[in-house]
Amino acid sequence: MFNFTLNYYGYIMPSVNYTTRQPEYNYMLTPGIINVVYFPLIDINIQVLSQTTPQYPLWGGFVVNIYSAVTGQKMWEAITNSSGYVYVMNVPLNASYIQPQGKAYVMLKVRTISPAIDSVYPYASVSQQYGQTYQAYASALGIPSGYYAYTLGTRGGPFDEDLVIYYEQFSVPVTTTCGQVFPITVPVENLHIVVTDLKGNVLSSQPVYPCATPSYCPSFYYNVTLVLDDQYSPYYLSSQWLVFPTYWLNLTDFRVVGQTWMQPEYEALESTFQSLIAADQAAYQSGMISLQQFVEWYVGNYSYYTLAALLANYSTSSPFAIFTFPSIVPHEGTIFVRLFMPARHSR
């Protein structure tokens, strides 16, 4: 009769029944055949999601680390793939029979890439198979060897490398199925900014009368302008998803301008350029303009249209200086990316 105990990163656990996951003792070993003993460890998937609305999977190189809650040793490291997934092997089940009592959980950390650490980590073969390594990330982005790959949407080193944005206890229920997905929301979110005077009064657009007697001239409004003045954007140190050497799919750019009460103005501008684009199309379809003219007009109007849309998004619909600057998580259709997260500083 034999009993088996596994000491795994400080977790002490008995062998268990494969189906019930309850401790199983007194094994009779038969010579000449392979005896199988199970321990309460399971493989799971973790999906890292942004806290924006809608939520997006954070692809673009977020490192997931699992640490033992008993010894503090690193048990796993992998980098999110294009679905924000990381496969983690051998996480202890949150079972009362695991010693020390009440410690059957792990510490889960999510952080940005630090190339010096993450490029040399000996990734598990399953991480390589699922494209969840530093090397897989760098090559998915088209970054040539010899260049550092940083988390997409951050400024890279030294400002935004190794930023810990999530560090919490993580426990896996005993009923977990193999490969079950656990979504983890991390504080990559929209920036909310309120601008006040020295006494806490929220600043607002102010009417200005451009002559001495207000009734003689129409007034206009001076807006409050908030500028995220980032002279280094787009960041040359940040990771850019590119088709080497010149065709960028994603660029990290933190520059933003927001203006109070200007959203309706920019929306009107948007629809003006939208109708100009429609007029271009109609003119080309009816044979009034050549293909070349159509392309030139279309590109010109489209660039003004996107600029107006961009400014409308950052500006407010009310006169008060309460702004929301969105994090832009890399996903289909984005060109500029930027991730606002705690501990990150903006000039």
């Binding site: 900014i193 309120v194 006040t196 009064n201």
Partner: peptide, 26 residues
Amino acid sequence: VTVYIAGQAVTIPPNGTIIIETSVYP
């Protein structure tokens, strides 16, 4: 944090908001 919108007190709960105090005095 309490701020004033057009003189009305408005409370901002601790929810990740940045309050920028500018050098403007009433």
